[in-house]
Design a protein around this nucleic acid. Structure first.
Length: 264
DNA sequence: ATGGCCTCGGTACGAGGA
């Protein structure tokens, strides 16, 4: 089965690209981030017509995450919001159990981590607190005997090799030491960075800024990740970045990232 | 040349992104 994560930067702007991707790649599960719309504005009919069941956690103008599951697979046990802070109203986390057919069930989360800039504002402690909440929840999920895939826009550059120009990010919330340490703490819970496990090369990027000709100059960063629990990692077949979508007209600044897992 | 964008709400341009 294939599971894709994609920060679409507005589902309304990106619907044609999304439908094209569903048709060409036929992923079994798609984790979307930055919908930038409320639940009632999500283009549900178009996505369902493409053969997918949809669960969303939307928010006006900002954030917003969704899970799409290709028929006849189905979602259950849907969780909206990351545990650990009842005051947090930002739409950044949705999780479900995916099952059906001959598939051994998998729990999948679509996550949009806070950017965290500027680092001297409350946004940075919010980011670090979110990462710590995610670590605790990741531990609790891994304790259940079901494979877990935590997929999304982590807004963390794990290592210098994950940026074309790491020096440019030295004091940025995406690359500061506490951000990277919090990401490593997720790995220390037993999770595997699927892309890194499959491809040790430098220069694997998932985001290129719209500004400053970053795309034509390949000044990218790798911030969209799929973290696999040990039982999910046991089923890992391959992981890849769908870089070509960055070259379309009116692209998202992020591209899809996909893992293939054995169905059993 | 050392900078270059995009989306939203709402209908000008500031906020937010990364």
């Amino acid at each position: 089965m294939r599971i894709t994560t994609w920060n679409v930067n507005s589902i309304k702007q990106r619907l044609p690209h999304l439908l094209g991707f569903l048709d060409e790649a036929k992923p079994d599960v798609v984790c979307l981030q930055e919908l930038k719309c409320q639940d009632e504005s999500f283009p549900r009919a178009e996505v369902e017509a493409a053969g997918y069941a949809v669960e969303t956690l939307g928010q006006k103008a900002y954030n917003g995450v969704a899970l799409l599951v290709r028929s006849p697979l189905a979602l259950s046990e849907i969780r909206r919001g990351l545990p650990g802070d009842e005051e947090d109203v930002q739409a950044r986390y949705i999780e479900a159990l995916i099952g059906g057919e001959d598939l051994a069930p998998v729990r999948v989360a679509s996550i949009y981590l806070p950017n965290g800039n500027p680092v001297d504002s409350p946004k940075y402690p919010y980011k670090l607190a979110f990462l710590e909440r995610l670590r605790r929840h990741a531990r609790a999920l891994a304790e259940v005997e079901i494979p877990v895939v935590l997929a999304g826009d982590y807004n963390v550059i794990p290592e210098p090799e994950d940026a074309a120009d790491p020096e440019a990010w030295r004091s940025d919330a995406l690359f500061l030491a506490p951000s990277r340490a919090a990401f490593r703490a997720l790995l220390a819970e037993g999770y595997t960075d699927a892309i890194r496990a499959c491809d040790p090369r430098d220069g694997l990027y998932t985001f290129w800024d719209y500004q400053a000709g970053c795309w034509p100059r390949n000044q990218g960063i790798r911030i969209d990740h799929l973290l696999l629990s040990p039982q999910a990692a046991d089923r890992l077949i391959s992981a890849s970045v769908q870089k070509h979508l960055r070259g379309l007209d009116k692209p998202s600044d992020h591209v899809p990232v996909t893992v293939e897992l054995a169905r059993t």
